[in-house]
Design a protein around this nucleic acid. Structure first.
Length: 434
RNA sequence: GCGGGCGUAGCGUAGUGGUUAACGCGUCUGAUUGUGGCUCAGAAGAUCGAGGGUUCAAAUCCCUCCGCUCGCCCCA
């Protein structure tokens, strides 16, 4: 096969068969955010690159090697959104949300772009459901944000997931901890994997989630931040875990949990399937970022949020056996096989649609058999058949495509009303049986 | 950026030097009925990922490139 045109690397088409999953996810998001009082915000597909360079930390991989940056024709340096939080923070500042009633709860679903090497569950364009809460440092808000995620997964039929919870303490305490961590590792540098030697220099926290066997022995004895939190961070952490436990959310405190972005403090979390140890099995993650708004030039403003990848959610739904019926696109299919009937048939279809009935018309000139096949494929429940005989007599045949295929003949003028009546009867029968 | 696997009709596969590249599903057309599904019959659909090389002869062997995929780094 010569594929002359194909979607760019790391992107994908969402074909009709997959749309029910997207519908279910988006509907779930709408419902769950409603229950938690979040309001929707949409930000542009691209931003000035500085928003992310400043917001995400310009030494993170996302910025250094994964961001799609480009100059527009006016010489502005722009970037396709690699991450939602900084963009929403920008909007918070731009629209003066600090003077809205606090806290401000926002959510969005947004296409994210990262120049990564694609693999299963990792794409150059993916979609994230993002939630952010600004203006509250209350640990109950941390728990609430996690609860939003949890409720969504539950609703979508995703079982067997665990919230991994950690705390990065506050900024100064974390810096001190990183020094302790480096002191611990420094005498053993040669024993570490090459990757971890690089981590030591660049991002010491990452030492803790190395998968390399050579790094495991040292990991166990390493100082754990979550076990030596400062008093305020410790109290905060306990309030979060207490709330989660009370709400029946399955969390596990993970002293080795590391989140990639610079701006987090205190609570960090991610949600992973219990049976999946792959690194990109992570369904969602987030944390508190009390310093971020200030970093972007605003007033000191606490914040917390998460992102969860919708493509990964859908993969996980499929793994959990969530399936959908083939969506039928029509309720009625008009089979028309009569010279000169086209305009009248078209008007009938319009009448049916005015009544809210999804209607398709068989292709003019095709055989009755071919049109009936079309009716079958369309998923329509009823067929309206107008052959030469019916047309000449001013009639139409109404056929039930389920079961035996019962038929009734009726005057053409009565078709629309009868169709609606029959569909209503069928609907009540189904709901009575269901 | 690094390493492994794989590229044959829309999809899933068979074919590993030798006639017009095969099968299943799907699509289209027809038969049984001016009427779908089941069954049956037929048709369309493949420059065998691309380019080059070896050979009398290449889907099959060699080289290069491209793409997909899995893993690492990292992330949703």
């Amino acid at each position: 096969m010569t594929t002359r045109y194909q979607a760019p690397r790391g992107t994908q088409d969402v074909l009709p068969d997959m749309q029910p999953y997207w519908d279910a996810v988006l509907e779930g998001i709408r419902e769950v955010t409603r229950l938690h009082g979040f309001r929707r915000i949409d930000t542009p597909a691209f931003e000035y690159a500085g928003v992310f360079e400043k917001g995400s930390g310009d030494t993170t991989d996302i910025i250094e090697k994964e961001m799609y940056v480009f100059e527009d024709r006016g010489g502005e340096k722009l970037a396709l959104t690699p991450e939602g939080t900084p963009a929403i923070c920008r909007a918070y500042l731009e629209h003066g949300m600090a003077s809205w009633p606090q806290p401000v709860r926002l959510y969005t679903t947004h296409a994210m772009f990262r120049y990564d090497r694609p693999q299963k569950g990792r794409y150059r364009q993916h979609t994230q459901f993002d939630c952010e809460v600004f203006g509250s440092a209350d640990p109950l808000v941390d728990a609430e944000v996690i609860a939003v995620l949890w409720r969504l997964y539950e609703r979508l039929g995703i079982r067997n997931v665990t919230v991994r919870l950690g705390s990065l303490d506050d900024w100064d305490a974390r810096r001190a901890y990183i020094e302790r961590l480096k002191d611990y590792y420094r005498p053993h540098l040669e024993k570490l994997s090459e990757d971890s030697q690089r981590r030591f220099a660049r991002n010491p926290l990452r030492l803790l989630d190395s998968k390399d066997e050579r790094d495991q022995p040292l990991k166990e004895g390493a100082p754990k931040l979550v076990e030596q939190l400062s008093a305020p961070a410790q109290a905060h952490h306990e309030a979060v875990t207490g709330a989660l436990a009370a709400a029946g959310i399955a969390y596990a405190v993970d002293p080795l949990l590391v989140r990639g972005l610079d701006y987090y403090n205190r609570t960090v979390f991610e949600v992973v399937p219990n049976d999946d140890e792959r690194a990109q099995g992570t369904l969602g993650g987030g944390g508190r970022y009390d310093g971020l708004i200030e970093l972007l030039g605003g007033p000191p403003t606490p914040g917390i949020g998460f992102g969860t990848g919708i493509e990964r959610l859908i993969l996980e739904m499929q793994k959990n056996g969530v399936a959908f019926d083939d969506g039928s696109t029509a309720s009625v299919y008009i089979v028309q096989r009569a010279e000169g009937a086209g305009a009248k048939v078209f008007a009938l279809a319009a009448e049916l649609r005015d009544l809210g009935v999804a209607t398709l018309i068989g292709e003019t000139g095709k055989s009755m058999k071919a049109q009936m096949r079309g009716a079958n494929h369309s998923g329509a429940r009823l067929a309206v058949i107008i052959g030469e005989d019916e047309w000449a007599a001013g009639q139409a045949v109404l056929k039930d495509l389920a079961g035996e295929g019962d038929q009734e003949t009726l005057p053409f003028a009565a078709v629309a009303a009868t169709v609606r009546e029959r569909l209503e009867q069928i609907a009540t029968k189904i709901s009575a049986a269901g």
